[in-house]
Amino acid sequence: MRDHKTIICRCEEVSLEDLVRTAESYRCSSRELKLRTRAGMGQCGGRTCRALVDSITQKCTNDSTPHDIPLGYQAPIRPITFSIMGEKKDE
């Protein structure tokens, strides 16, 4: 009812309505849901909405929570500048 006004991914401003509609029409995995809607692809790397996206996937596909983490993590897991990434300093 208020789902179009309910933002799930704050970074990319993806609404609950969009996510549910996408999950229902494609009956897809969390990863596909993320790629189709951009939910979880913003600045925070999905730290705020990852669990919500997973729960939408599960509820729309009637799956139980898998033991493997549905939305994988990739390095860098924190925002860093290219200069830090390019640095080669070992201690």
Binding site: K5, I7, I8, A51, L52
Partner: peptide, 12 residues
């Protein structure tokens, strides 16, 4: 730990 969100309209 991190906090779980409760998204409702206007929470941004």
């Amino acid at each position: 730990a991190a906090e779980t969100s409760l998204p409702i309209p206007g929470w941004t």
